[in-house]
């Protein structure tokens, strides 16, 4: 159901006005010597470039009407997210990129498929107008969860190395010796999406709902979508962190179940 007011278009001049916010950030950085001007410049440039490219690519994909391009695009989004996680997580002693990518591909596809096919009930389930925005939200939010969970896994294993090795030296296998760290890492990954459910609608209005309302949708329809999204994000962060931590944890130990992190 659409409301009376249609979506107002944003033209080039309005985009220029919005750039004033970046000028504010750059000025603050200059005045206080924060050294963020370069990052602000590249960040702004990338925001424009990436979103414009995304807009054109999505337009193309919407026209093709075939699951192939939709799934390929979704795969590229996940690959990019896995790459960002790789650069964000500082650990270099453990090769975690491939298990992270594999877990994200498997876990996020399942969640997005369940939401589009069974919760929203889109026909066909891969319809790009639904599959890609919903999948994008899954990836974007769970990417942070996975990064947090991996940081916690590596950090805790290093910090608790003495305790982990004590358990190993008494005959524990790597799973038994790292059970507490495993739980801590999964919990760290899940907490942000649970906290988001606590604050949604009170502390902030989430992006999807805001977008739908701006596009003229009935707020009561928009909130239902948002509820689905919030629940979906709990599912995707849970499945994402669980799979990633489960696979990467094994790589923190050698063939004799010896801890490789020093």
């Amino acid at each position: 159901m659409r409301m009376d007011q249609a979506l107002l278009e944003i033209g080039p001049s309005q985009l220029l006005v919005a750039l004033g916010f970046i000028v504010l950030g750059a000025a603050t950085s200059l005045v206080h010597g924060l050294g963020l001007e370069r990052d602000l410049f590249w960040g702004t440039l990338r925001t424009f470039a990436q979103l414009f490219v995304m807009g054109y690519v999505l337009t193309l994909i919407f026209r093709v009407r075939h699951p192939g391009p939709v799934l390929a695009f979704y795969g590229v989004m996940i690959l990019s997210a896995a790459w960002i996680i790789r650069s964000r997580v500082s650990e270099r002693a453990v090769a975690f990129f491939l298990p992270t990518l594999a877990s994200m591909l498997a876990g996020y596809f399942v969640i997005t498929y369940v939401v589009t096919a069974f919760v929203v009930g889109v026909q066909p389930w891969w319809r790009p107008q639904y599959f890609l925005p919903l999948g994008g939200m899954v990836i974007g939010n769970s990417m942070n969860a996975v990064a947090i969970a991996l940081e916690r896994l590596f950090g805790e294993l290093r910090r608790r190395r003495g305790d982990v090795e004590m358990l190993l030296s008494l005959g524990a296998d790597y799973k038994e010796a790292s059970a507490e760290t495993f739980r801590a890492a999964i919990k760290a990954g899940m907490i942000p999406s649970i906290n988001a459910m606590m604050g949604v609608g009170i502390v902030f209005l989430p992006g999807m709902m805001t977008g739908q309302i701006l596009a003229g949708a009935d707020p009561l329809v928009a909130i239902r979508y948002q509820i689905v999204v919030m629940l979906m994000l709990v599912g995707s962060t849970t499945l994402g962190t669980l799979l990633v931590v489960w696979l990467v944890r094994r790589r923190c130990f050698g063939p004799k179940h010896e801890l490789l992190l020093r």
Binding site: D163, L167, L170, A172, D173, H257
Partner: peptide, 24 residues
């Protein structure tokens, strides 16, 4: 050879107590 013995199997019989032993 140790390469042919699973770590937990070995360490259930050959037990190492570190200089600063950990406790749960």
């Amino acid at each position: 050879p140790l390469e042919d013995v699973p770590g937990p199997v070995l360490r259930s019989s050959v037990i190492y107590v570190a200089q600063t032993p950990g406790m749960v």
